[in-house]
Simulated assay, not measured.
Amino acid sequence: MIKNEKIKASEVHVTGINGEDLGIMSTREALALAKQYKVDLVCTSLLTSPPPCKLIGAGAAKAEAQQDKKKSGKSPDKRKVKEIRLTFQMEDHDRDTKQAQAERILKKGDSVKLVIQVHGSKEGAAGKEWAEQLCQALAEFGTKTTGVQVSGKQVVVQLDPKV
């Protein structure tokens, strides 16, 4: 966050305390205006010319920066993909436990990759069917991002949390 005298641009596009557009002015004028209102001049982006700046109270600038950081905390690109391994020969109770674990992960906001270990083509088809059943059971918590993939000795499907 660049503010006050650290802004090196000769001109800035200023937004007032209440969000009103004050237009383009020299950085000196904008700093004088900030001192007059006893607030900070904060640069919001360096990608445009002249850079957009806001007049913000000192505490509000920090709070806004923390809020932006908090919002970006669970963005889709920051999601973790948790892998849950299952075997086709599992008992029903163990399957239910793994399903509950997947629910918890999806509720938390992370993605789940279900990997079902199978042996042979007959189990592969049954494993795909089981993966579809799991996806339907977890439908209220997440959506499939990939189709059910059967490759050799495993069946894989990934679920992302519903936003």
Rank of each mutant, 00 (worst) to 15 (best):
M1Y: 09
K3Y: 15
E5F: 06
A9T: 00
A9R: 00
V12W: 02
V14G: 03
G16N: 05
G16T: 00
N18I: 05
G23V: 09
M25P: 09
S26I: 05
S26R: 10
R28A: 15
E29T: 08
A32N: 14
L33N: 08
Y37G: 01
Y37E: 12
D40L: 12
C43V: 12
T44M: 15
L46V: 12
L47N: 02
T48Y: 10
S49G: 04
P50S: 01
C53F: 07
C53W: 02
L55Y: 04
A58M: 04
A58Y: 13
G59V: 07
K62L: 13
A65V: 11
K70L: 14
G73L: 15
G73Y: 10
P76I: 11
D77N: 11
R79F: 01
K80A: 08
K82L: 13
K82Y: 10
E83C: 00
I84C: 06
L86T: 09
L86P: 02
M90A: 10
D92Y: 13
D94Y: 10
K98H: 12
K98S: 13
K98A: 15
K108L: 06
G109T: 00
D110T: 02
D110R: 03
D110M: 02
K113N: 08
L114V: 06
I116D: 04
V118P: 07
V118Y: 07
G120M: 03
K122T: 13
K122E: 15
E123L: 00
E123R: 03
A125T: 11
A126S: 10
A126V: 05
A126N: 09
W130R: 10
E132L: 05
E132F: 08
Q133M: 11
A137M: 06
A137P: 05
A137W: 02
L138C: 04
T143P: 00
T145L: 04
T146V: 01
G147H: 01
G147P: 09
V148Y: 05
V148M: 04
Q149I: 14
V150R: 05
G152K: 03
G152A: 04
K153W: 07
K153T: 07
Q154K: 14
V155S: 07
V156I: 15
V156N: 06
Q158D: 07
Q158M: 08
Q158A: 04
P161Y: 04
K162N: 11
V163Q: 11
